[in-house]
Design a protein around this nucleic acid. Structure first.
Lengths: 235, 235
DNA sequence: ACCTATACGGAGATATCTCCTCCGATTAGT
DNA sequence: ACTAATCGGAGGAGATATCTCCGTATAGGT
């Protein structure tokens, strides 16, 4: 199955470089813009149908530009993973390694906590075997080096590891997914707690940068947190 | 729609208390046992079909005992939520409130990190309007009281709130969902970091109770972490 | 040992979702 | 104004989940 049955459809995937008509080019931008917003908000699970409508376009237009969702994801997230690499490089440039480490964590977690799609690209591995994986691989060694430096300077607890970083990302992401809609930026509160737990110099408690949810907000978060529907939509 | 069209099926829901035949009663236990395992492992999303087969039974048998998934969930998790309440009560009995707080966090997080279904029951709110919600409501005041005590004794940071507990639960759960299959109990590592971040007495670093994932394990975790399938099951 | 109320299994009806394509209508650009 | 490129939305194909029908099997009293 899936032979070359491309009769006039799918021209983009056959001649991907032919210049587009002006309207088409503009619509391509619209699609990327909508996709960026929706992936960030709802993760890679959004349908191309959703993205199309959010861009004010039909579904077919999306599929004409991007043969499938993976192509769109790669087109979008290559840039964002490069941003991660840049953050890690910049963090290494600090002379005070603890400051660098803070910069790194803040940078990585800001990018990833606030973009669910990016988080899923970084934390997952499925279906993405191409350029994105190569880019992802570049981040780890930088983090490792920075952690070594911060530990050598005695600022970061010795038993912390580079491989803890993705897990912390997942955790910050969970906080964000749980109550980010109710209180954007709440993840910073929990990251601040974690950072305090990573610091060797334990003379101070960093004040938490955000208020906790109040009772009503927590209730809202619980209502909004849909994991799996339990029963049919019934009355 | 959905009137009483119960013709001979669904007898259980009409006369729920009639004693079951011995084989039926045994099978009911099997179902509960299988459900406990599967809900803990994969969350409330598992189908009753799955549970039936895991119990070595047909699907219909499950639906004959429990009219729908919600009924099964309530039958199962009432007991577990009561365990949570018991933990909170026991924690309040400590005279050293920080010890009590540690006991509480360890207890709650052990129960919830290692049972994805319980976590979803506690963190979510949808579809469960009955007894389970009432029980859940009993936990919060106990936690609040304990936190006040620990803060009054100067052991717990002042800006920590009872409403932070569910969020920390979500975070520990995320760590567990990300790499629990690779390294069960890894969530304790991250909880230990968080606890260090909550402590006012900052003279010591609690040694982390578990090793971080190594490179290979992290890779496995990434492979196993399925968020949303990106493309059709294709070849 | 027999008989009947009770229970069992698994195929499949129904519903929902997502991915992706067809084709008639519309528009850019020379 | 003409034509090639583009658009939009309905809908087919395929997964997946919930719940039911009905033919078959069995527990347990007599």
């Amino acid at each position: 199955m899936r032979e070359n049955l491309d009769h006039s459809f799918d021209t983009a995937s056959v001649h991907p470089e032919r210049t587009l008509r002006r309207d088409a080019e503009e619509n391509r931008e619209r699609i990327l813009h909508a996709a960026k917003i929706l992936f960030a908000e709802r993760g890679l699970g959004v349908t191309l149908d959703d993205i199309g409508h959010h861009a004010g376009l039909g579904v077919a237009t999306v599929y004409r530009r991007f043969p499938n969702k993976v192509a769109l994801v790669e087109a979008l997230f290559e840039q964002r993973v490069i941003e991660l690499i840049d953050v890690a490089r910049a963090a290494l440039a600090f002379t005070d390694a603890w400051e660098g480490f803070l910069f790194l964590m803040k940078g990585i977690l800001t990018l990833e906590a606030e973009d669910r799609g990016l988080r899923e690209v970084i934390l997952g591995s499925e279906c993405i075997k191409g350029r994105l994986d190569d880019l992802k691989a570049e981040v780890a060694p930088l983090i490792e080096e920075l952690i070594s430096k911060a530990q050598a300077q005695g600022a970061l607890r010795q038993d912390f590891r580079a491989n803890d970083v993705p897990v912390l990302t997942a955790m910050a992401g969970a906080a964000q997914e749980y109550c980010g809609i109710i209180s954007p930026g709440i993840w910073k509160r929990y990251v601040a707690i974690v950072i305090d737990g990573l610091k060797v110099d334990r003379s101070t408690c960093t004040p938490l940068p955000q208020e906790a949810l109040d009772q009503n907000q927590l209730h809202q978060a619980m209502l909004g947190w849909r994991t799996h529907r339990l029963s049919k939509g019934h009355d």
